[in-house]
Each structure stands twice: as structure tokens, then as C-alpha cells.
Amino acid sequence: MRASLLRSPSPLPGFGLSFGIMMAILSIVVLLPLSALLGRGLMIGPADLWDMVNSRRIWSALELSFRAALIASVFNLVFGIVLAWVLVRYRFWGRKLVDAAVDLPFALPTAVAGISLTALYAPNGVFGQALAPLGIKVAYTELGIWMALIFIGLPFVVRTVQPVIEELDREVEEVSATLGARRTYTLRRVVLPTLAPAALTGFALALARSVGEYGSVIFIAGNIPNLTEIAPLLIVIRLEEYNYDAAAAIGIAMLLISFAMLLAINLIQIWSRRRIGLV
């Protein structure tokens, strides 16, 4: 058995082969392309990158992408916790069907979701017609973008929180009741903090997914510059103009903001897990 500085010895074979296959595919599919993007950014230089990003249209698009993703993910955070609770703790007709259906947004192609939501919420669609008398327009407004992002981000929090609820220790809820706490107090002070780390993981996944979402949004957004034009669409437009530098600049800006957000969420999570002694 060869042992090296980097690897402790193991009697099992196949390290070279499996590691080689993994690194080869990882490099060609993920690492090289992303390096090409970042390399392009370096070639352009930070000053020019900033100049290219620093326009009202791009800032509006970036702001819209992150704002809408945040709003949709917060909705999904709250709804996801409640739905997971209902699916695990209550017994009712159709529960198993709904439990299975929660993953629909993972399975349904985004373009399909996009045109279907548009058909529903367009002024002549079923929901669009119902909402029109109330003065609410969904399709071709920012509200439509929220709806699309709520759809695609819906399963994340449910799926991360569900196993935690299943494994909750009922005695902890019981002890809270014997100490005189009302049910709402128990839920708020005992149950919710226990679900928080998992809920936050789901929130981060939903946020990352919705920030970069393209397929489900572009149909319902209307894509009006400065108003309902999301950042990924702007990249596509620049590419269609063969303006690769500008496209790369927006892409890099999106990457940086996404990673900053995920880093922040990870830090909150490490902090909250350490508090309950999981790390």
C-alpha cells in the first residue's frame, strides 16, 4: 500500500482510478469553465469590470434578482416550516400525495413552469382574470417574478426541515408544557430554535437557486429594462450581442454577490449549530 503525505493508507484499492475520474470530469465540466470566466475578469481588470457593471440598467437588474430571490425565499422559509410541520405531525386525507407533490418544482422543467405560470397569471388567464378586479397585476410585473421564484424554491426548506421534525424529541415539548408554557410559547421558544439550522440550510439553497433562476422567470417577467429585467437575462442579451466582456462582468458580479450571501448564511449557521452543541 502506497501512502503519501496527502493520503493516509487504506487497504482498499482504486484510489488512483476513482480520484482520477473524479478530477478529470470535475475539471472539464466545472473548474475549467469557471476559471475561464474568472480569468476573463482578470484580463479585463477590476477598473474596467467596474465600469461595465456600473450602469443603471445592470444595477437595477442585479438588485431585482437579489431582492426577488430574497422575498421568495423568505416566503418559502416560513411556508416551508409550516408545511413540513403539517406533513409530519398531522394526519389527513391526501397527505401522502401532497408530500410527494412537494418535489414537483424539482422535477418540472423551469421553462414549462414559466409558460404555465404565465398562462395562469396573464390578464386573460384564470388567476389573472380573478385578480384584475382587485387591481392586482401579476404577469409582466415584479409580482410575477416572485411567483415564479416561490414556485421553484418551494421544496428546499420543506425537505431540509422535515427529517428534523421527524426526529424531534417529544419529551422536550412535554417538559415545556409541564413547566407551564402554553403551546404557542413551546413552539416559539423550543421547537423553532431546534429547526432553525436546518431551515437556514434550506433557505440558503432556495436563495442560491432563485438568484440565478432564468427559465421560469423570463416568460412571466415581461423583461422591461430597469423594471422587470433580471440579471441572468442581461447576460443572455449581452451574449447575443457578442459582447463577451460585458456578459462576463455581470456574471462575475453575480458570482461574487452569491458567494458573499452564502458565506454569510454559513457563518450564521455555524454560530447557531455551535450554540446547540452540534459542532
Binding site: L26, L31, L37, Y214, P232, A248, G251, M254, S258
Partner: peptide, 25 residues
């Protein structure tokens, strides 16, 4: 690194591939 693609916009992924393999590279 393996999880990375989940936090990258599909459009940015496409863009990265275009920059790597496109005619100007």
C-alpha cells in the same frame, strides 16, 4: 467544489462554457 454548480446560475454556467470553448478563446 462538487456542490458548487448548485450555487451558480445556469446562465452563468453557460456563459463560462462559451468563454472557455468559444471562437474568441
Amino acid at each position: 467544489l462538487i456542490d458548487l454548480p448548485f450555487s451558480v446560475s445556469p446562465v452563468v454556467a453557460g456563459l463560462a462554457l462559451v468563454l472557455l470553448f468559444g471562437a474568441h478563446s
